[in-house]
Simulated scan of single mutants.
Amino acid sequence: MLKKTLFATAAIALVFTAGCSASDAKDGDAGAASATTAVDLASIEKSDAAAALLPADIAERGTFVLGIDATYPPNEFKDDAGNPIGWEVDLMNAATVKLGLEPDNQISKFENIIPKIEMDKFDSGIAGYYDTVKRQENFDMVDFFIAGNQFGSLEENTITSELDICGQKISVPNGGSAPLYYLPEVEKRCLAEGKGKIEVMGYDTTEEMVAAVSLGRAYAFVADSPVVSYAVKNSEGKLVGSDIYETLPAGAPFKKGNDELVEAFAAAMQELHDDGTYDEILDFWGVEAGRIDTITVNAGTE
């Protein structure tokens, strides 16, 4: 899972939504477009072919119930009115409408999403989930993204290799996977090649982590790739992002056994990919580095 091995904080939204106004959409107005959404749902045409794959009970119900942990910009967070926004929200909503269903987005705590999918209270959920072999034991993953570790830096300190950070000060999210697992492995390679140790500087918010780099206190920062890509997009050209390292497929989990729903959702997502909507959403949120060529199911092998 992307976020929970990193970190989340409401303060992220304050620094990263610069230039975005609060949604003009009223509660329940699924078709309204605003500065905080990449897609006008009213413009998406239903796919009869994808909708024909839906299980009868969901087609009859007419809604798709999605659990959202809205604490992780830019994947999913809240606008000023408390409505869920983000690139995963946009993509899942668009696929839902493509299936002829109405989005029923329910904000939920992270720890409650998986149990509610298992209890059939949610059809799926989004919280920055990696597709892993372990997760596939109980869920089928519709994969629509590639994520991993990414560095952000000033242009003069562009990271072209992981070993560029040897001997440097690197800002990181406190408690995240980068300082706990990723950087120690990179440091082993630094030392093996006779290069300096990495000085890790921990911060509680993305804003603080990025500021350390902008002010010259740190050489670069590292975090989950959507977080870094979004920071770079909103830096007004002050920051650049590196390649993404140690990538894994990511997407939305569905309860095992719901084969028809998984097939239908993957088909709808692929149509969005083919007609350009997928790219529009990723580009809008600045996370196009995680683009994949084909929507897959259970592509994780680790």
Rank of each mutant, 00 (worst) to 15 (best):
G67E: 04
I126F: 11
T158Y: 05
N83Q: 15
L91R: 02
T132P: 08
I107R: 03
D57G: 12
E137K: 15
W87Y: 15
V89K: 01
E88A: 11
K78R: 15
K116N: 13
F151R: 00
F139N: 02
V65A: 07
I68P: 03
D131V: 07
Y129W: 13
G100N: 09
N83L: 12
P73R: 04
G125I: 02
K109W: 04
A147F: 04
N83P: 08
A50G: 10
I107W: 03
S153P: 08
T96E: 02
P55H: 07
M119T: 13
G67R: 02
P103Q: 07
A50V: 11
I126Q: 05
T71W: 12
G100L: 05
N149V: 09
A59I: 07
N93F: 00
G152K: 04
T132C: 07
G82I: 12
A94I: 06
Y72D: 09
L53E: 13
E88Q: 15
V142N: 02
D120T: 10
A49Q: 11
K121V: 15
S43N: 03
A50L: 12
F144I: 05
S108Q: 13
A51E: 05
A127K: 06
P55D: 13
D104L: 10
F144L: 06
P115K: 13
A70R: 02
L54W: 00
S108G: 06
W87M: 05
L163P: 03
T63H: 10
A59H: 05
G148F: 03
E88W: 08
N93S: 15
K121R: 14
D69Y: 09
I146K: 10
V65M: 06
W87S: 04
I107V: 14
P84W: 03
D120G: 11
M92C: 11
L99W: 04
S47A: 12
D143M: 10
W87P: 00
K116Q: 12
K121Q: 14
T71L: 15
L101E: 02
L101W: 00
A42D: 01
N149P: 00
R61Y: 06
E102C: 08
T160W: 07
E88F: 11
E60L: 10
F144R: 03
A95V: 02
F110N: 11
F145H: 00
A59E: 06
Y130E: 07
N138L: 12
L66F: 11
A127L: 15
I146H: 08
F122W: 08
D131K: 09
Q106H: 11
M92H: 08
K134P: 06
I159P: 01
L101R: 01
E155H: 07
A127R: 01
L41K: 00
A52D: 13
F122L: 11
I159F: 06
T158A: 05
I58L: 12
I126E: 12
E102L: 14
D48Y: 06
A147W: 02
I117N: 00
D123W: 08
N93K: 05
S153C: 07
P103E: 08
A51M: 08
L91D: 03
V65W: 01
E76G: 14
V142E: 00
K78H: 13
G86Q: 07
E45R: 01
I126W: 03
